[in-house]
Write a protein that binds this DNA or RNA. Structure first.
Length: 357
DNA sequence: TAATCGTGGGA
DNA sequence: TTCCCAAGATT
């Protein structure tokens, strides 16, 4: 192994920990120097942070911990309340797995999380990264924590030019060589902080990096090009018609989506399938909650982009004569925020309220 | 293994 | 506008 500048792994981890101690970022879930980490808070924050930015997570973390101070409190909540509280954060399977995990920990383990990777890894919603992170941060275990930040930092430190995801095993080996036995949790957070603030995807601030003297990509002038990644598939555009059906009392019809798949378990306004071909109103009407109803298309579209496709929804508005003969739930317009509505459906509501009244 | 699964911010 | 991508897990 070549570390450059005569540095050994222990030197490098010590350098990074010193950097981390000098200017530790303040985050709601982060314990201070000498404090004991709360495994519930570590777990909750790590699940929320999966593929999600710190800025987006902070208000949700505050809401969850204020409302459910202990894992037992979260386990005792109805799953729909958890889904509603999660609404807007995305990747909703996380919310279902979060609740399932809380129940397992509360009911079978007396509210205590497993204190090692193998035990954590068995719980729903906890994969390789999250198990290692909790083991290290909450329990002081020596665990090799590899997230996107660590992959980027290691790819640059060791000039790994093989593209992801094929390079993942190699990168984990390299990360293991630098992971210290002591303060593994602080070290993991330090590498992630380095990746988030200095060793950034674009425009890395190599001049401020404590590891610069040892970084092989920096020496070769290829830091910003790493890690290499395989080209991504194109994102198709899908289209649908969504039905805004109001009752005489001013409520609107909602239904719940299937528990798995896209927006699984969340609420929605009824709609056609989402497909690439455009819909005519006549073609869409049979999919509506009142097929015989006369629907009026509202001007404009609701555009929303998911990870693997774009979506354009046209809103059809109609009025029901009475609250009968439809499947779903009627919700007063001023209580929509209490529903587990994903951002897409909140856009639909905003569009309908702006155009239909 | 590769596809699926949200959202918002920044370049 | 469009693309990238952020403390990944699941199937």
């Amino acid at each position: 192994m070549h570390y450059g500048s005569g540095m050994r792994p222990a030197d490098l981890s010590a350098i990074l920990l010193a950097w981390y101690d000098r200017d530790r970022r303040i985050l709601p879930w982060r314990y201070g120097p000498g404090e004991t980490a709360d495994a519930y808070h570590v777990w909750l924050s790590e699940v929320m942070l999966q593929q999600t930015t710190v800025a987006a997570v902070i208000p949700y973390f505050q809401t969850f911990t204020r409302r459910w101070p202990r894992v037992e409190d979260l386990a005792a909540a109805p799953v729909d309340e958890v889904m509603t509280a999660w609404a807007g954060l995305g990747y909703y399977a996380r919310a279902r797995n979060l609740h399932a995990c809380a129940k397992l920990v509360a009911e079978w383990r007396g509210g205590r999380f497993p204190d090692d990777e193998a035990g954590l890894r068995q719980l729903p919603g906890i994969g390789d990264y999250t198990a290692a992170a909790i083991a290290a941060i909450a329990f002081g275990r020596r665990a090799v924590v590899v997230d996107g930040n660590v992959e980027r930092v290691m790819a640059r430190m060791f000039a790994v030019t093989e593209p992801l995801p094929a390079a993942k095993p190699r990168i984990k080996e390299l990360a293991a060589t630098l992971t210290p036995d002591l303060r593994a949790g602080d070290y993991a957070q330090a590498v992630m902080d380095l990746g988030a603030t200095i060793c950034t995807p674009r425009g890395p601030a190599c001049g401020l990096c404590p590891w610069r003297p040892t970084c092989q990509a920096q020496a070769q002038g290829i830091a910003e090009t790493l890690p290499a990644k395989l080209a991504k598939a194109e994102r198709p555009t899908r289209r649908g018609v969504v039905f805004w059906l109001t009752a005489p009392d001013g409520s609107v019809l909602l239904r719940r989506r299937p528990p798995k798949g896209l927006l699984g378990g969340m609420m929605e306004f009824p709609s056609t399938d989402w497909r690439e071909a455009a819909w005519s109103l006549d073609e869409a009407a049979p999919a509506s909650p009142l097929p015989a109803k006369s629907w009026k298309l509202l001007p404009g579209v609701v555009a929303h982009s998911f990870t693997h496709f774009h979506l354009e929804l046209t809103v059809a508005a109609g009025r029901a004569s009475a609250q009968a003969a439809v499947r779903g739930v009627w919700c007063p317009l001023d209580r929509l925020e209490e529903q587990a509505l994903p951002t897409l459906m909140r856009k639909v509501a905003r569009h309908a309220l702006a155009k239909a009244y």
